[in-house]
Simulated scan of single mutants.
Amino acid sequence: MTSPILYIFSGLPGSGKSTLAKALARVTKASYLRIDTVEQGIRDLCQFKVEGEGYRLSYRVASDNLELGNSVIADSCNPIELTREEWQDVANNLNAQFINIEVRCSDKTEHKQRVEERVSEVANLILPSWQQVVDREYHPWNSNSINLVKIDTAGKSIEESIEELLQRLKAHQR
Score class of each variant (00 low, 15 high):
Arg26Cys: 07
Glu53Gly: 02
Lys150Asp: 00
Asp36Ile: 01
Leu125Ser: 09
Asp135Met: 12
Ser106Cys: 05
Ser15Ala: 14
Arg43Lys: 14
Val72Arg: 01
Asn78Val: 09
Thr37Phe: 02
Thr83Glu: 15
Leu169Cys: 11
Trp130Gln: 14
Asn70Val: 03
Ala23Phe: 04
Thr83His: 12
Ile101Arg: 07
His172Tyr: 10
Asp89Ala: 15
Leu66Tyr: 05
Ile162Gly: 02
Ala30Met: 08
Val115Ala: 06
Gly11Tyr: 02
Arg84Leu: 13
His111Ala: 09
Gly54Phe: 02
Ile99Arg: 09
Leu148Glu: 00
Ala21Ile: 12
Ala25Leu: 03
Cys46Trp: 11
Leu66Ala: 04
Leu68Lys: 12
Ile126Lys: 15
Pro13Asn: 12
Ala91Arg: 10
Ala25Arg: 08
Thr83Val: 15
Ile146Gln: 12
Asp44Ala: 12
Ser145Ala: 06
Val90Ala: 02
Asp152Met: 04
Ser76Pro: 08
Leu6Thr: 13
Leu169Tyr: 02
Leu165Asp: 00
Leu57Thr: 02
Ile146Phe: 01
Gly14Gln: 06
Ala30Ile: 08
Gln97Ser: 13
His111Gln: 08
Tyr55His: 05
Gln88Thr: 11
Asp64Gly: 04
Val38Ile: 13
Asp36His: 01
Lys22Ser: 12
Asp107Leu: 07
Ser3Tyr: 09
Val103Pro: 06
Ala123Ile: 11
Asn100Ala: 07
Ala23Leu: 07
Val50Asn: 04
Ser58Val: 03
Gly155Pro: 03
Asn92Ala: 13
Met1Pro: 12
Ser15Glu: 11
Arg104Glu: 08
Ile8His: 06
Tyr32His: 03
Ser161Arg: 05
Glu67Phe: 02
Tyr55Lys: 03
Ser31Asn: 07
Val27Asp: 11
Ile162Arg: 10
Leu166Val: 10
Ile151Ala: 01
His172Leu: 08
Thr28Asn: 08
Ser106Phe: 09
Asn78Trp: 02
Val90Asn: 01
Tyr32Trp: 05
Met1His: 14
Asn100His: 10
Ala62Met: 04
Gln167Glu: 15
Glu102Tyr: 06
Gln97Pro: 00
Cys46His: 09
Arg114Trp: 06
Ser71Tyr: 01
Val134His: 11
Asp75Ile: 09
Leu169Asp: 01
Ala123Glu: 15
Lys156His: 10
Ser10Val: 09
Glu117Ser: 15
Asp36Lys: 01
Val38Thr: 05
Ala21Pro: 04
Ile158Glu: 09
Leu169Ser: 07
His111Met: 07
Ala74Gly: 09
Ala74Pro: 11
Tyr55Cys: 04
Glu86Pro: 10
Asp135Lys: 13
Asn147Met: 00
Val103Leu: 08
Leu166Ala: 05
Thr153Asn: 00
Val27Thr: 13
Glu81Asp: 14
Arg43Tyr: 06
Lys17Trp: 08
Phe48Asp: 04
Glu163Tyr: 10
Thr83Leu: 15
Leu20Phe: 12
Ser76Ile: 04
Glu86Trp: 14
Arg34Phe: 00
Glu164Phe: 03
Gln167Lys: 15
Leu127Ser: 13
Asn78His: 03
Thr28His: 01
Leu20His: 06
Tyr59Asp: 01
Gln167Val: 14
Ala62Tyr: 00
Gln131His: 14
Phe98Gly: 01
Leu166Cys: 11
Asp107Ser: 10
Ile99Pro: 03
Gly14Ala: 11
Ala21Cys: 10
Ile5Gln: 12
Arg104Cys: 09
Trp130Met: 14
Asp75Pro: 12
Val27Met: 09
